[in-house]
Write a protein that binds this DNA or RNA. Sequence first.
DNA 1: CGTATATTTGAGGGTAATCAACCTATGTGG
DNA 2: CCACATAGGTTGATTACCCTCAAATATACG
Lengths: 214, 214
Amino acid sequence: MHVQASAKIELPSYLPHQSPAPVFEGPTTPVSFFPAGAEIYAQGEKAGALYQVEFGAVRIYRLLADGRRQISAFHLAGETFGFEADATHHFFAEAISATGVRVFRTPCGMDMSRQLLPLALRGLTRAQEHLLVLGRQNAIERVAAFLVEMSERQGGLQQVELPMSRNDIGDYLGLTIETVSRVFTRLKEKCVIRLLSLRSIEILKRDTLLAMAE
Amino acid sequence: MHVQASAKIELPSYLPHQSPAPVFEGPTTPVSFFPAGAEIYAQGEKAGALYQVEFGAVRIYRLLADGRRQISAFHLAGETFGFEADATHHFFAEAISATGVRVFRTPCGMDMSRQLLPLALRGLTRAQEHLLVLGRQNAIERVAAFLVEMSERQGGLQQVELPMSRNDIGDYLGLTIETVSRVFTRLKEKCVIRLLSLRSIEILKRDTLLAMAE
DNA sequence: CGTATATTTGAGGGTAATCAACCTATGTGG
DNA sequence: CCACATAGGTTGATTACCCTCAAATATACG
């Protein structure tokens, strides 16, 4: 549900000047269904296909030998994921909730660069911005940044749906679930947010939240 | 000095099957020189050009309002940087030491997707792997991972040149310079590394270092 | 050789992790 | 409909790691 501003977005000259939100054409691929927690692909597997979220949500993550997990990205409805620099997946992809995914197996020899580059660049920017959060922000700032990000990705509405668990949020922000929970409590106490349910929050003071996220 | 394995690298079908290390053709652009610390571009500036490091090294970073800095990437000789998802730079780029940079202003209308996608994907993978370091690894693991990364990017040799200061390393790893310095000392005490000079280390126990980096 | 900068080392404190207990939703079967 | 089980979430006490502040040492440079 990525709201694309209707205003023209200026692009660097090396990008193709066409539809900014590429839609993959060709014979309509059937939508694969993944129940909550199901693996879409695993690290080390052969890569090649592209995936577009139809509904639900996906987490992309990596594991350390001792089980520590870092979620590098969440993908919501409409977003594309699965591209890799070589023929091997370097990350795991799992359905967070019941999720429908359209799988595109690009025919060999077909060049998808024009469609993929903008997506790859957006992913790169997002990852680099996330580096700032993980490297230099404290717990409150991280959670605030996360809530702002999720809100903006859902159209900037007051009410934000969080399809992922506190555990997922922690592993995305480099925090433990206890710390995430404590920060949520503090934000509630300060009346910055309100919990409609466990997975649904309302932003009461957007400005404060933005200031917290720096 | 990125050593490209001569063995064929398998690529996903959506990537163009041609030279894996794209070289930009056309009229040879002159090399711009930047002394140590000079700004190559700033956040908020208009983007559009591409940059290839001829010699020296470059840091890409972002700042928080209070001055905290996160370096998202270092670029060494031979590497390309500067591409953005839209017409604005989201990061700063500075020369670390005396640096030569070839600037490519792609003619308007020209589509560089085929050449850029592999670079963007490699950058994306690198950024995502760095997220794991910042989100889930402790100080020793971070420094070990950094040294391994720098070693591999310089051909896997024992001797590794570190063109950047401790400050830069800290801002890349999400640590303070004091912590970086202390970890270096500990690694020296354990005879895992040896300092040939401040900016040049020798890896004595690669296996131990790899194990530390997980 | 002297100054400025970078790095190392030391002492103390704060933030978030860890360990542990409790609470709350959700779902199942009686 | 309620009792219960279970997973997910919250709260509390303590600890550990890294940051901050401060000083000493090493290195680079005019």
